[in-house]
């Protein structure tokens, strides 16, 4: 999922300055799991905005705000109210914000779309409602086959491909003493798999052209353009 954290209300308030009638759009996908933009958080935001003298014209949480069709389907019945909004606040990831803007543009509406969350990347839930961690950078050339299913690009602070730096202490990373050194994890895993010799192979520099932004996925042909 895409991890999100709430922006301070003061920042949101500042972004909405001058707009009295506001629509609030959350996301019942990732932002719901992160407890930042699901239906519950949308209701809380509505209350806060009302306390701050905003007129909330409507509020909803599409199933996945990052899908154009789902967002459009959720907004279609609310067209009159939407037209009256002076700004739309989205409690979703950066993708949800931009898809919402796209949907509004497709309607021919020029309404400012504001973001209430900070996106912190592709994150996977370890303990529901408590903890999610980053495991994948979407680098475009997965090397998990070579590293025992543990990604050094993501889990090593320095994204080292050929083994650890010298900085680990008691199995922990020099950057964060609470975090396991990814390369020690990989090494132990490869030993358990009886494949530690595979780590002797030189890993060539990554092809970062595969991460050149913005990527475009041709879903029909299953390739990046």
């Amino acid at each position: 999922m895409i991890g999100t954290t709430p922006k301070p209300f003061e920042e949101i308030s500042h972004a909405l300055k001058g707009y009295e009638k506001v629509a609030v759009i959350g996301c019942d996908g990732c932002a719901k799991v992160c407890m930042t933009g699901g239906s519950d958080q949308v209701s809380q935001m509505v209350e806060k905005l009302k306390e701050n003298s905003k007129n909330v014209v409507f509020a909803l949480s599409p199933e996945r705000t990052c899908y154009v069709d789902k967002t459009k389907a959720a907004l279609d019945p609310l067209m009159d109210k939407l037209k009256s909004a002076q700004a739309v606040l989205v409690l979703g990831c950066g993708g949800a914000v931009q898809i919402t803007r796209q949907v509004l543009e497709n309607y021919g509406l020029t309404i400012p779309v504001k973001v209430g969350l900070d996106s912190v990347g592709h994150i996977d839930t370890l303990i529901m409602g408590e903890l999610a961690i980053e495991q994948c950078q979407e680098c475009g050339e997965c090397i998990l086959n070579e590293t025992g299913g543990i990604c050094p690009v993501t889990k090593c602070a320095k994204s080292l491909l050929n083994g650890p730096c010298g900085g680990a202490q008691n199995g922990k990373c020099e950057v964060d003493s609470e975090r396991d050194c990814a390369w020690i994890l990989i090494y132990n895993r490869m030993i358990a798999l009886g494949e530690s010799d595979k780590l002797r192979r030189f890993m060539a520099p990554k092809d970062y052209s595969k991460m050149a932004k913005p990527r475009r996925l041709n879903i029909k042909e299953r390739r990046v353009e």
Partner: peptide, 27 residues
């Protein structure tokens, strides 16, 4: 060398590069 991580220094918000690692640099 690989290099100490950015957050250990005096420009903690700098973008870390680490485009290649020390083994690759040697090669």
């Amino acid at each position: 060398l690989t290099g100490d991580y950015t957050s250990l220094g005096d420009h903690k918000s700098a973008k870390s590069v680490f485009d290649i690692d020390s083994v690759q640099l040697l090669k």
